[in-house]
Nucleic acid binder design. Structure first.
Lengths: 205, 205
DNA sequence: AAAAATTAATTAAACGTTTGTTTAATTCAA
DNA sequence: TTGAATTAAACAAACGTTTAATTAATTTTT
């Protein structure tokens, strides 16, 4: 059954995201997915291969490429859409994003490389937008690598340091939905305002 | 011996930072610290208590408070110093910073609360600087919580997604020192430029 | 179309390690 | 001589993985 494979991966995503790879046992996953323990080896070969399968499943490439090819949009509009896209994407799947962040500390080089490859691919698209804006004298010269890092880092911060932000924003720390609802629009507004000031060529020193 | 306690914690910091709490065994720590396995329970009671002891040891409160009380500095100068302080602090101890980030996903509520408390304390100091700048009509109105998140998040991103950035910046991924040397000045420059554009009241829309 | 043969899916049980922690004996210092 | 520091060994529990047996589904043969 193909959907049973997916069912296992969905449960694994939740548990890996909540407790980390090493903090989650294959028995945990099997139990929550209502499958026999041996099915995980049967389907994926090993716990680590299962994580790789999960990363492959969730890594969708198409969105940013499509956005970039739309020539009716100005660089400003594109950057706004990038922000909306990433905030929605990350806030819509906090667990997977946690996995992507924590995977960088994996002992498996394969997994680190896989994650790096996914991130590089997305980075290249944003870089194109920024370079285009600079060429058109709309954006000023900035550190492109770290500007992308700022966007990703700001969003990541609100999910990774979540206990900190729930305290700060007075949200019930166990209510995922309430937190998402509160932080999503704020993140979008803040990042757009931040990038506007940062990139606008009128603010060149 | 008090220094043996510290020696264990130093080794634990390195291993926890590299492989995570669950990815590090107490036998690993004992072996690398050249102490008997039982000494860890003897000194700290448990693996988790050892992590708490490590967090307590490294959480130094004084620096930002002192900076804030210095009335000879303008809000701009204070923010620049905050950036220097955090970049140096995090880049000078990547392992500890990793622990602080990953600890948010700990299953221990004690540890999550401890980390949150440390972060809140630092946040309050930066908030004071930003509010003071706004009162003096130097800084414009911004989302203070997320502005701090941007500073922390941007730095975190370069340490947490390190395999990504070593690839991006063409640095040997196994050479800690080379990466630190390359990323530290860039981070400071980028963050100061970013915050300047973001906070300057002249850029008010 | 029914029966037989073959492959795939699923299971409970066991495998050998590794885990964090404890014990009880021993060495060391005051 | 008393109490703290240190040790090797053992503890039970949990770990990822494998095995061998059984059931379900599919294909082949009659």
């Amino acid at each position: 059954m193909a959907d049973k494979r997916e069912q296992i991966l969905t449960v694994a995503e939740k548990l890996f995201g909540d407790h980390g790879f090493d903090g989650t046992s294959v028995r945990d996953i099997a139990q929550h997915a209502n499958v026999n323990l041996a099915m995980i080896s049967y389907y994926f070969g090993s716990k680590e291969k299962m994580l790789e399968a999960l990363l492959e499943m969730r890594a969708n490439y198409t969105m940013l490429e499509a956005l970039n090819k739309d020539e009716s949009l100005t660089p400003w509009e594109k950057m706004d859409k990038v922000i909306d896209f990433y905030v929605d994407k990350i806030m819509g799947n906090l667990c997977f994003h946690n996995i992507m962040q924590q995977g960088n500390n994996s002992r498996s080089e394969d997994i680190k490389e896989l994650i790096t490859r996914i991130k590089l691919r997305n980075f290249e698209q944003i870089k194109k937008i920024l370079l285009d804006g600079q060429k058109k004298k709309i954006f000023r010269k900035v550190d492109i690598e770290l500007t992308v890092g700022t966007v990703m880092g700001t969003i990541s911060q609100t999910t990774l340091a979540r206990p900190f932000y729930t305290t700060l924003l007075n949200v019930d720390k166990n209510n995922d939905e309430a937190y998402r609802k509160k932080i999503t629009p704020r993140l979008k507004t803040h990042l757009k305002q931040l990038l506007h000031a940062h990139l606008d060529i009128k603010n060149e020193e």
